[in-house]
């Protein structure tokens, strides 16, 4: 095994500088990077920890009531936090769906958002890959999952990404020019370089809205725990706005979470009858084209989108009615 250096800079500027070293990677919880190295998938030679940078391990609420969570806060810490659960039940649901208790103890908020994309033709152990001509993500010139594609189509498997997108969360990008971006703008659409971050940039924290919309989350996977998503769906509606703001996000179907905009438009006005919910689910399904790079068969994953969106919309619809009744 080649030698891997582990740097633990103490300031954001030093992180940015360290990221300029050859083969540099952010090391967050390590629950993805470490096994990727074990399987020789990741050959980065410099790991840059961010937990020593002030603020990255903090959870705080700003004057406007928005909660900011540092990138190096672990999923277990988020789930155990006395306030976050009450404010952001949808996000908690997604967090609980991630991996297993031991992994949630190590894995971090930033790591889950930025986690490397996965593909059944790449995320395989060493012997499996040894005879293959490399794909895009392995430094080659082809895609086994989508032979016609000119880009890598590995999937984003972050459970928090679709939920945070549906909630309208933002990410703090540190680097030469620190900035806040909408979460949707974090993902590039290229499975190989799946983040839009520029050289030296990294995610420092996320910020959640003061008044999160109502929402629902569905994770479709073969087992009740442990598995990565084969399809993720997050749906939210904010009825306080006029017209109401609807977000329907389908994830784990490509390198970037997909907004089903046509379905959203349908539900922004008018009544949420069961026919219109079904129509929205149809539109969401039509907007999504998973590649055959998950563990479950692609026809099933495509078809599941319909059911999951419908299911999630029904849950949100009844939550809206309930909330209206309370008000």
């Amino acid at each position: 095994m080649s030698s891997t250096a582990w740097l633990r800079p103490r300031t954001a500027a030093e992180v940015t500088m360290a990221l300029g070293l050859p083969g540099a990677r952010i090391l967050a919880g390590g629950t993805d990077l470490v096994p990727n190295r074990t399987w020789e998938l990741d050959t980065g030679t410099t790991w840059v920890g961010i937990g020593a940078v002030p603020g990255t391990r903090e959870v705080r609420c700003d004057a406007a009531g928005r909660w900011e969570v540092g990138a190096a806060v672990t999923l277990a810490e988020v789930l155990a936090h006395p306030q976050l659960g009450r404010h952001y039940p949808l996000w908690m649901e997604a967090m609980r769906a991630v991996a297993t208790p031991e992994i949630r103890t190590q894995a971090t908020v930033g790591g889950n958002l930025c986690v490397d994309t996965r593909c059944r033709f790449r995320n395989q152990p060493p012997i499996w890959r040894s005879g293959l001509i490399p794909c895009f993500k392995s430094g080659g010139d082809r895609c086994y999952a989508a032979p016609a594609s000119r880009l890598c189509v590995a999937m984003l498997v972050s459970d928090s990404a679709p939920v945070l997108m549906a909630m309208g969360a933002e990410a703090a990008v540190a680097g030469p020019f620190a900035r806040w971006i909408a979460l949707a703008d974090l993902y590039s659409g290229d499975g190989d370089r799946h983040l839009t971050l520029n050289p030296g940039e990294w995610v420092r924290a996320i910020r959640l809205p003061a008044k999160p919309p109502l929402g629902a989350f569905r994770k479709w996977r073969p087992r009740a725990t442990m598995d990565f998503p084969e399809v993720d769906v997050a749906v939210s509606v904010d009825c306080d706005e006029e017209p109401r703001v609807v977000r329907i996000v389908v994830s784990a179907v490509g390198p970037v979470p997909v907004r089903a905009t046509s379905a959203e438009t349908l539900l922004e006005s008018g009544p949420w009858t069961s026919e219109r919910l079904a129509e929205a689910a149809d539109r969401a399904r039509a907007a999504v084209h998973p590649y055959d790079n998950g563990q479950l068969r692609v026809w099933g994953r495509q078809r599941a989108v319909h059911g999951l969106v419908l299911d999630a919309l029904r849950q949100v619809a009844s939550a809206v009615v309930e909330k209206g009744a309370q008000a």
């Binding site: 395989q124 152990p125 087992r223 725990t225 442990m226 598995d227 563990q295």
Partner: peptide
Amino acid sequence: GPHFLGYRMPTILD
């Protein structure tokens, strides 16, 4: 999937 994510065996929750 020659590994325990590709070859899925029942967990305690299944």
